[in-house]
């Protein structure tokens, strides 16, 4: 039984990592589309979301099948539970990439508004978190997962700073308010992506150590 299931688990991990790689790529493309004003690339990110959604559903069905047919326990059970959650988180990350692509289209060159904060730096940080979280899954490396989680504070701080910068910019330039609010939304999307990368890393810790570290674990 174990050998049969092991094959399915290996396949599941491979599929999850494929989804992860796809999602990472979407995030990169969305940010690039935004920074370069590449409408075509933004449309491409939007158009590709169905593929991500389908992958998510297929992965979930795969998990349910393994649960029903093999009734995994211990590390196998924790792995399936983690995959179910990470799968969902990745799909949400891709949705935020679509949101960024949407804002990229809204903020097309005709608006000509400069972003009052450094999008590239924040996006890079979020992409790093996502990469670390997925690498920690591949390597079953909880130390790396915990490092990814720590980076979330930096992302949150950036978002907070961005909020004040955008507020200031609006105050100074009321007629650019629409565009500036779009930029604030983008900061918010990136911040949410950081949260989701954190969730993924937390699920890796659960899978490997069996420890739920979310919300600081159960409070006594």
């Amino acid at each position: 039984m174990a050998i049969l299931m092991q094959h399915e688990l290996d396949l599941l991990k491979k599929e999850l990592l494929t989804l992860g790689a796809e999602v990472e790529e979407r995030v990169k493309q969305a940010v690039q589309a935004l920074l370069t004003g590449d409408r075509k690339l933004a449309e491409q990110v939007k158009g590709g979301d169905d593929q991500i959604d389908n992958m998510e559903i297929e992965l979930e069905e795969e998990c349910l099948k393994i649960l029903a047919l093999h009734q995994p326990v211990a590390t196998d059970l924790r792995f399936i539970v983690s995959v179910l959650k990470i799968n969902n988180d990745l799909e949400r990350v891709a949705d935020f990439a679509v949101n960024i692509a949407d804002r990229a289209l809204d903020l097309d060159s005709s608006m000509k508004i400069d972003c009052p904060y450094d999008i590239a730096t924040m996006a890079e940080l979020v992409e790093t978190m996502l990469k670390m979280a997925l690498d920690s899954l591949v390597e079953r490396d909880t130390a790396l997962a915990r490092k990814a989680i720590q980076l979330d504070d930096d992302v949150d701080n950036l978002h907070r700073e961005n909020f004040f910068r955008v507020k200031e910019a609006i105050r100074e330039n009321l007629e650019s308010m629409d565009g500036l609010i779009y930029y604030l939304s983008i900061s918010r999307y990136l911040e949410r992506m950081g949260d989701l990368a954190t969730n993924i890393a937390e699920d890796v810790v659960y899978h490997v150590d069996g420890e739920i570290i979310r919300h600081g674990g159960i409070q006594n």
Binding site: M1, A2, M5, Q6, P72, V73, A74, T75, D76, L77, R78, G210
Partner: peptide, 18 residues
Amino acid sequence: LFVKPQNEQTEDYITGRF
């Protein structure tokens, strides 16, 4: 024991990797 066994032998047995 079935979610997070403490012993590696237990883990191997219940997951069928014995």
